[in-house]
Write a protein that binds this DNA or RNA. Sequence first.
DNA 1: CAATAATATGAAAACGTTTTCATAAATACC
DNA 2: GGTATTTATGAAAACGTTTTCATATTATTG
Lengths: 344, 344
Amino acid sequence: MANPKKAQQNTILDIAEALKLSPATISRALSGHPYVKEKTKNDVLKMAAQLGYRRNKMASGLRSNKTHTIGLIVPRISMFFHAEVITTIQNGLHKYGYNLIICQSNDSLDMEKELAEILLSSRVDALIAACTLHTIDFSHFDKLLQNGTPVVFYDRVPLNEQNAAIIKGDDFRGGYIATTHLIETGCKRIAHISGPLTSNLYQDRSSGFQQAMEQHKLPVNKNWVFHQELTHTNAREAMRKMFEGAVTPDGIFTDNDTSAIAALEFAREKGINVPGNLKIIGYSNDPRTSIITPSITTIEQFPEEVGEKIVETLMDLLKSGGNNVDERIQPITIPVQLIRRMTT
Amino acid sequence: MANPKKAQQNTILDIAEALKLSPATISRALSGHPYVKEKTKNDVLKMAAQLGYRRNKMASGLRSNKTHTIGLIVPRISMFFHAEVITTIQNGLHKYGYNLIICQSNDSLDMEKELAEILLSSRVDALIAACTLHTIDFSHFDKLLQNGTPVVFYDRVPLNEQNAAIIKGDDFRGGYIATTHLIETGCKRIAHISGPLTSNLYQDRSSGFQQAMEQHKLPVNKNWVFHQELTHTNAREAMRKMFEGAVTPDGIFTDNDTSAIAALEFAREKGINVPGNLKIIGYSNDPRTSIITPSITTIEQFPEEVGEKIVETLMDLLKSGGNNVDERIQPITIPVQLIRRMTT
DNA sequence: CAATAATATGAAAACGTTTTCATAAATACC
DNA sequence: GGTATTTATGAAAACGTTTTCATATTATTG
């Protein structure tokens, strides 16, 4: 029953006492203040190590109003693209001594709002967000911004938010080169399985698709353009509808790889020859696309570069302390690249 | 240039002033203390909402010594199993009002040690850890435990840590049923591509493998048992070695799905008929295994159940406040299940 | 109706840092 | 050698809560 009297953490006062110095000096020595004698500093560092001292982040954060913690809101960490971005961000931030609180919205707007609140309450030094598909109104981030907390959006971003940084892939170009590739490999009747137009992502990819089609004087069949959540079943259903008609597509551009996989599986089941009679191109270069037979042509989004840019931007914003409101932050676009495989 | 004087966050004092009450009462009302009049409580809640008040976690944490934040260390969030576990944990903890700080060790022991330090410094209320493959000595978690911070290990766990909770899949049984399945489908010459024996995971799976072989009176060929990091290239290399001999395996059990995929790809390239002349079984039920042709038989680990158990255990530990040292915490084992597909 | 208990609030201390202000010691300058 | 500057330290306030202690009000009891 003996209560295991928790071994008290040593504080700055313990070091002070041990060295007959004031807590102020200890604090200064520990945080590299210039006005502290070399010898004193060494003594403090040694004693700190000896006592196993670790700065209490709560206290430090409360006083200095800096948590050295960054919040991240993401729809789902299991999405390949996000997992890669997050890993890069985390490794990058770690170098600068920042922590990352990762939160998943599960693509629920309510959750996203709540998480923004929680992270505000946690007084994160900055916030990184990839919003849900349903986020049209971004005002739940305003409180952070008003508070001077830098916000960086990536992937799914607001259209005209002047105060936040915006980093996104070149979705227009992605849509354009994907469609052009289908056309150049001989497709005439091209379908587009896209996400909801509420998100800038799918707007841009759709524009890219449209422009490529127009440029090559190909008609866009309205019945072959889908805007829906990009799930496996939705894509299957879209395929079913298209392939019950007399005229069927000979090329399909899907806005994610899950849909491309669904399309390919459908084709296999129906005995449609891919890429002979039907070409398929996906989006994101999910690992599954290179493993399936035939492997799927897709668009690479370079998640590491996105992650690196986010960290870079973030550090700039944190250094300037949110004081560069006049020089409006310019959106950053990361290039995309076609990965040609066996479905085209 | 106009400094955008950061809109100050409202504090408990602002509410107190607005309502002519003391900060103490506000605090009590906000945290549901029993001795506060219904009307007062409502007033406070209303005013808090009106002022957009959000509790400052730093201050609250400093005073009450509770951060309502849980730390998580994991080798890599992009690993399917972990991504699923994390998602479940996060959703679970959210219900109890807890936050999650997710950290990746990148399977580096040094990183893991450093993260443990950082999370200790962040004064997390508890820690969840899936250790690296190279973690044999777990003493870097001792400081947390001594400090009374509950620690829950899962997946890759210490062998005999009495003070921490341990949740793991039934790896022995996983190895056993995988091997037995190969035997029952006719394999006589079975290879095992396993991870390093430094991890309990692979020890247990290996024991399962051994026992199944013994029970069916099948010899274990030493040259067909590999203990190495479970990467794609390592698995390929193992395959190459085995298939340059005169006698080759007719069944392969790999301790993860990446290796199973590598094995399958090797077989395809060499024109080996799977499952006709070679049967393959992986481990973890990674989404890729169901997509590849032929789809790979594997062992399901039920990450959601692992996640749920972790949350449950954690809440118990937090409630008891680490005061149940006498009743040693029992390890929890999550069952596994064979998912039979086309490679067997 | 007095005495006790339960309910409701406030004052002030406490949590462990950082930072401002003050001051002492050391160094530089004329 | 005295003044000005720089360097080094300490005392004490501050950050925004929570909590202990004290006290006032209300409800309950014999």
